[in-house]
Design a protein around this nucleic acid. Sequence first.
DNA 1: GCTAAATGTGAGCGCTCATCACATAAGGCT
DNA 2: AGCCTTATGTGATGAGCGCTCACATTTAGC
Lengths: 204, 204
Amino acid sequence: MTKRKGYHHGNLRAGLVAAGLELVRKNGASALTTRACAQWNGVSSSAVFRHFRDRRALLRAVAAEGFAMLARTTAIDDPALTRQDRLLAIGGAYLRFAIEEPNLFRLMYGADAQDTADPDPDLEAAADPLLAQTAFAAGAEGDMSDARTLLAWSIVHGLAMLTLDNQLEGLVPSDPRQRAERLEAILVHALPLFADVGRSERRG
Amino acid sequence: MTKRKGYHHGNLRAGLVAAGLELVRKNGASALTTRACAQWNGVSSSAVFRHFRDRRALLRAVAAEGFAMLARTTAIDDPALTRQDRLLAIGGAYLRFAIEEPNLFRLMYGADAQDTADPDPDLEAAADPLLAQTAFAAGAEGDMSDARTLLAWSIVHGLAMLTLDNQLEGLVPSDPRQRAERLEAILVHALPLFADVGRSERRG
DNA sequence: GCTAAATGTGAGCGCTCATCACATAAGGCT
DNA sequence: AGCCTTATGTGATGAGCGCTCACATTTAGC
């Protein structure tokens, strides 16, 4: 794609991310080679390093793109929904994304992209909205460190990771659509944790 | 380590796994190089392939070792514990392991070891006991596909993954010990899901 | 329209995994 | 014992990788 008109590409950076995204989605993060991304853009392999410090920087850009996609599908703000239904809807979207884009999802949360020793501000920014949505829907009034927020997030993320990493084989359907449905049904069992308790927290 | 007496090593396979385990623990899966493992055993780099089909097979053997270690620390069978306390103890051990051995933990559940297209029976066998423990403690009578089992597992696994992948930075303490304590405290909030129905025990 | 900055090139270094024919040792057999 | 099969380790080698370099080309600022 992204044909070049002459010596210069025009927007090689974006082209490299697009190529990388495609490679990751199809064959996993290990399939993203700087050389393949370059070739995909019809450019020499050393051109990559004009736009990315190293391979990992490119991986992170792809991961950020993934977070943007995920945030888009989990941006559920229907006022007609009860808070619990909204929580379910967000969780379901999260799970569906993980199931439909396993390679991308793994990259987003994997060691390549996330590194304690050398964090990436852009990536963190891209991942931010997600947690904020969860925090509100979990009934923690946006408090991300609230136990309810972390529980809601960990349940959904944990189910996503386990099924991605093949740990639920035989326990849930293998068909992606059915599996997503089954996992969403499991989420329902967790709803009591996020119920409005008798002492109404309606204020505010 | 593992000095050799002559031309033959004696137990190169075990030596390679030991070397790989050390490399992974210290510097992550990407630091496990067939050459490094060979050198660690004072052996030529091609000797590795007499014992492992390819690099990934070695990675999987290391992962299996990790599962064995994890199963050992989560093997909690104190009859004096209530079922909920046992569930907490298992979850805590799981979290502590993940926090203490982040690189190994990531390998165990990562795409290198777990692969839908080409599953490893040995690895699955090594991971089995873990789930069985959880299933019983979750009150599902050993039914692994029970929603409660999957919820219990996903909460603990999700918290482990999130903190490993740096997603909880700023939300939980950065000191490993304190972080483990905080995460265990969060587990307590999930206990109502695993209460014996009709019986109200432990309100907290 | 000239110059400086940005961008792309091609050669190449050092590393990786993996394979090959070959060398050496260990164990079973008579 | 001696022989032969099998298991195991070696060194050379190929292909691919990330990344760097000096150099070519284009764009943009003055």
